[in-house]
Simulated scan of single mutants.
Amino acid sequence: MAKPNYSFEKRQRELEKKKKKEEKNQRKLAKGSAPDASTVAQASAPADAGIPAENA
């Protein structure tokens, strides 16, 4: 029976943690640079939205 290679398993866990940390950092950077959804909705709404037009 083969004995377990603990150093290999530890290295794999460390690589997985590093990968997750980098992915999280990338998501954080992408989220910070993308405009907020509420800001986009307000900017695309017409200035006179909700104001009824007067009948002449």
Rank of each mutant, 00 (worst) to 15 (best):
Y6K: 04
P35Y: 04
S38N: 08
F8E: 13
S33L: 12
P35D: 03
A41T: 10
A53F: 05
K19V: 01
G32E: 15
N55L: 10
M1H: 06
L15W: 01
E54W: 05
K20D: 05
P35V: 00
N25G: 04
N55Q: 06
E14I: 02
A30E: 14
E23L: 15
A53H: 03
R11D: 03
Y6F: 12
Q12L: 15
A30T: 02
P35I: 01
Q42L: 11
E16W: 06
M1L: 12
S38T: 11
E23K: 11
K17L: 07
R13E: 11
A37V: 05
G32I: 04
I51C: 01
E16I: 01
K31F: 05
D48F: 13
K19L: 09
A43Y: 09
A41G: 00
E23W: 10
Q12A: 08
K21N: 07
G50T: 03
K3S: 11
Q26G: 04
K10I: 09
D48N: 14
K20L: 12
R11K: 15
P46L: 14
A34D: 02
K21I: 07
A41K: 13
R11E: 09
A49T: 04
S38Q: 10
P52T: 09
K3I: 14
E22L: 14
A53K: 10
K17A: 10
Q12V: 15
N25T: 04
K19G: 00
N5F: 04
A49K: 09
Q42A: 11
K31N: 09
E54P: 03
P35C: 01
P46D: 12
S33E: 13
A47W: 04
P46G: 12
K31Q: 13
K21P: 00
S33G: 05
A34N: 04
E14P: 00
K3H: 08
L29V: 10
E9Q: 13
G32Q: 15
P46M: 04
E9A: 15
M1I: 05
A53V: 09
A56L: 15
Q26W: 14
Y6A: 04
A37Q: 01
K31G: 03
V40H: 00
S7P: 00
Q26L: 15
P4M: 06
A37E: 07
K3L: 11
G50P: 06
Y6E: 11
L15R: 10
A49P: 00
S7G: 01
E22W: 03
E9H: 14
E54N: 06
K20W: 02
E54V: 08
K24H: 09
A45E: 12
A49L: 13
A56V: 06
A47I: 09
E16V: 03
D36V: 04
Y6R: 08
A41W: 00
L29E: 13
I51T: 08
L15M: 08
E14A: 02
Q12N: 03
I51Q: 12
K24N: 03
K21G: 10
L29T: 10
A53E: 10
E22T: 08
T39S: 06
P46T: 02
P4Q: 10
P52E: 13
F8V: 05
A2T: 14
K28A: 12
K17S: 02
L15K: 10
G50I: 07
E23P: 01
K10L: 02
S44E: 14
